[in-house]
C-alpha cells in the first residue's frame, strides 16, 4: 500500500512541478511587451496604468535573470502571493479566487459524488435486465453524449425562461447580500439547482453506461460462472460482480476529472455561476494573465487533491493494492 500510494504521490509531485512551470510560462509566452498588452486591454485610469506598469515590471522581475524569476515564482506561490488582478484591479488574485472556490466545491462535489453513486447503482441494476437495458440505457447514451453547455442551455431555457421556475444567472439573487437567513439559503439553492442538474445528468448517464458494461463483463467472468455452478443465489453473484466492477469505475472517476473540469467551466459560463470556471473565462477575455495563472494553479491543485482522495478510496476497496501486489492500477 505504501508503495502504491508512494508512486502516486511521486506522479502528483511531478505533475504539480510541471504544471507550475507551465503556469509560470503563461505571461511570458505573450508576443510583445506583456505588461503593456495586458494593461491596454483593461481600461484603467491613467495613474492606475502607471502604478500597474511599474508593479508588473517588478513582479515579472524583468531585471533579474530568468532562473531567478522562476525561483521567485515558486517562493511567491508558497506565500500565497499570486499577484494582483488587472481586470478587478486592485484586488489580489488569491482573494478573487478564494471567493470563487466555495462555489466550485458546492457545485462540483455533490454533482460528482451523487452522479457517481446513482449512476453506478442504476447501471448495475439495469445490466442483464432486458427491459431496462432496452428502454432506459439508451437514455444513458444520450445523456453522456450531451455537451454540458447544451444541456445547461436547454435546462435554463426550459425551466428558467419558459416555465420560470428557476433563476438562470448568478449564485444568488442580485437583490440580496450574502447573509444567514432562510430566504438567502433558499435563493442560493435555487440558483445552484440547474447548473448542478446539468452536470449531474451528463455524468449520471456516463457512469450508468460504464457500470452496465463492466458488470456484464464481470458476470461472464470465470469466478461468476463458478459461483453459478455451485448454485450460489443470483444476489451473491451480482454482489461480487458489482464489487469487482466498481474498481474500474473508481479509476474512471480519476481519469474523468479533467473532463468534469471542462464541463463545470462551460456550465458556469451558461449560468454565470461565479466559480473558477466563470472566472477563468473573464480572465481570458480581459487578458488578465495573473488571474489566468491563479485559476490554472487552483484547478491543478483541486484535481490533484481529488485524485489523491480517489487513490485512497481505491486502496480501501481493492485488497490487492493494500497487499502491494499491484504496482499500479489507477
Amino acid at each position: 500500500m505504501r508503495r502504491y500510494l508512494g508512486r502516486k504521490l511521486l506522479i502528483y509531485v511531478l505533475t504539480f512541478f510541471l504544471a507550475v512551470t507551465i503556469d509560470w510560462l503563461i505571461p511570458r509566452f505573450m508576443p510583445g511587451d506583456p505588461v503593456q498588452t495586458m494593461l491596454s486591454r483593461a481600461s484603467l485610469h491613467a495613474e492606475a496604468v502607471e502604478v500597474m506598469h511599474g508593479y508588473y515590471t517588478r513582479a515579472f522581475g524583468l531585471d533579474v535573470p530568468v532562473w531567478r524569476q522562476y525561483l521567485n515564482f515558486w517562493v511567491a506561490i508558497f506565500h500565497g502571493d499570486l499577484g494582483t488582478s488587472v481586470y478587478l484591479f486592485p484586488q489580489p488574485v488569491i482573494k478573487i479566487i478564494m471567493r470563487a472556490v466555495p462555489y466550485d466545491v458546492f457545485l462540483l462535489l455533490p454533482a460528482i459524488l451523487l452522479s457517481w453513486f446513482a449512476g453506478n447503482w442504476f447501471g448495475a441494476f439495469a445490466a442483464r435486465n432486458k427491459w431496462l437495458d432496452n428502454t432506459l440505457l439508451p437514455l444513458g447514451y444520450i445523456l453522456t453524449a450531451t455537451p454540458y453547455m447544451w444541456l445547461g442551455i436547454l435546462l435554463a431555457w426550459l425551466f428558467g425562461v419558459v416555465l420560470g421556475i428557476f433563476p438562470i444567472a448568478g449564485a444568488y439573487s442580485f437583490s440580496m447580500r450574502p447573509h444567514l437567513s432562510w430566504a438567502f439559503i433558499g435563493s442560493v439553492v435555487k440558483h445552484w439547482f440547474l447548473p448542478f442538474a446539468s452536470i449531474f445528468l451528463v455524468k449520471f448517464g456516463g457512469w450508468a453506461i460504464g457500470m452496465r458494461n463492466m458488470i456484464i463483463y464481470e458476470l461472464e467472468a470465470d469466478y461468476s460462472h463458478y459461483l453459478e455452478a455451485l448454485g450460489a443465489p443470483r444476489g451473491l453473484i451480482r454482489k461480487y460482480a458489482f464489487r469487482n466492477a466498481i474498481l474500474p469505475q473508481i479509476t474512471g472517476l480519476s481519469l474523468d476529472l479533467g473532463v468534469i473540469v471542462a464541463g463545470a467551466l462551460v456550465t458556469e459560463v451558461v449560468f454565470s455561476y461565479p466559480g473558477i470556471g466563470y472566472l477563468i473565462l473573464q480572465a481570458i477575455q480581459n487578458q488578465d494573465y495573473f488571474l489566468i495563472q491563479g485559476c490554472f494553479l487552483f484547478i491543478i491543485i483541486g484535481v490533484l487533491l481529488a485524485n489523491f482522495a480517489i487513490d485512497i478510496a481505491y486502496v480501501i476497496v481493492d485488497p490487492r493494492t493494500r497487499l502491494g501486489m499491484v504496482g499500479e492500477s489507477a
Binding site: 505533475t15 503563461i26 473540469v261
Partner: peptide, 23 residues
C-alpha cells in the same frame, strides 16, 4: 513513458487548450 502519460493525464486538458487558444 508511463510516468509521462500519467502526468499528462492528470493535468486538465481544457486548461492547456484554453491557454494555447488564448494566445
Amino acid at each position: 513513458l508511463n510516468m509521462i502519460t500519467n502526468i499528462v493525464l492528470v493535468i486538465p486538458t481544457l486548461a492547456i487548450l484554453l491557454i494555447i487558444a488564448a494566445y
